[in-house]
């Protein structure tokens, strides 16, 4: 055993999980190497200190909060089905219509000079933008997978989505139960080339996604984005036994295009 190997076994040795043969080699090197002895002693000291780091008990507030939240979720599970906590579409459309009317009024009345009217127009545009986004976010939680896909596709019309929207897409990509929805979310996220958040979600998905055709899509998107951080998860997938052969082919293609 040389110093480098010794280094890599220090933790296991101190944890008592080195195999007998390794342990003998470790001890042998230890006896003959002063600097490694020093390293071991130093690590032992650190281990003692680690042991002294307190494991705190959180206040009762945490459990109370959790139990309240659990009760709410259980309620919601029943109520949601019974009363369909729906997005107030009717009100939303009414608001959108009135915003449109007011804005139309501005244009019919002729564009007035001065900052005030510009501010007001921008404010109205901002409100309708916010409203549109809220409608999209609500639709993304609809119980029909077709409607969730529709909501995801709407995001393609937005030039500069904000973090909330990208997070909603990332949630669909990582957590939606329907794989067609996850696929639509992957494609939507792939459009936002400059968003770090979107890229991170796509890479994370490659780690967790088990559906082969989705894996292939993700590979395609990440290669198109030239996202080098995808190399690690791609290599891992290549080494995983369950990965189907046709996915491995795409992985190999993708890896060569990224290196």
């Amino acid at each position: 055993m040389d110093c480098k190997q010794f280094e890599n076994n220090i933790l296991d040795y101190l944890d008592g999980s080195l195999a007998e043969a390794e342990k003998q080699r470790f001890k042998a090197h230890l006896q003959s190497c002063a600097s490694c002895q020093a390293e071991l002693e130093a690590q032992q000291k650190l281990m003692t200190l680690f042991g002294q780091v307190p494991q705190e008990t959180p206040s009762d507030r945490l459990r109370d909060g959790f139990l309240d939240m659990l009760a709410e979720e259980q309620q919601a599970q029943v109520v949601h089905m019974a009363h369909k906590k729906e997005f107030p579409w009717k009100t939303a459309f009414q608001i959108a219509a009135s915003i449109a009317l007011v804005m139309g009024g501005f244009f019919l009345g002729g564009l007035r000079s001065g900052d005030t009217s510009q501010e007001q127009i921008s404010a109205l545009q901002q409100e309708s933008k916010v409203l549109k986004q809220q409608m999209m976010l609500a639709l993304m939680e609809n119980r029909s997978p077709s409607k969730r896909i529709q909501a995801v596709n709407y995001t393609e019309e937005i030039a500069q989505p904000d973090a909330t929207l990208i997070k909603a897409l990332a949630d669909r990509l990582l957590y939606d139960a329907n794989s067609n929805v996850r696929l639509a979310a992957a494609e939507a996220l792939g459009n936002f080339k400059s968003s770090q958040q979107a890229r991170a979600a796509l890479i994370e998905a490659l780690n967790t996604e088990k559906d082969p055709s989705l894996q292939i899509e993700l590979i395609g998107i990440l290669v198109r984005l030239q996202e080098k951080r995808a190399l690690e998860p791609m290599k891992k997938l290549l080494e995983t036994q369950e990965t189907p052969i046709y996915v491995k082919e795409q992985l190999n293609n993708g890896i060569t295009q990224l290196i």
Binding site: S144, I149, V181
Partner: peptide
């Protein structure tokens, strides 16, 4: 609207007419 997914099986669909409200995948 239809949202269908299979791993190995084939998917065959014959539409009478196509509902325009939300996507078919």
């Amino acid at each position: 609207p239809i949202t269908a997914r299979t791993s190995t099986g084939n998917i065959e669909v014959v539409f009478t007419e196509v509902n325009q409200t939300s996507p078919i995948s």
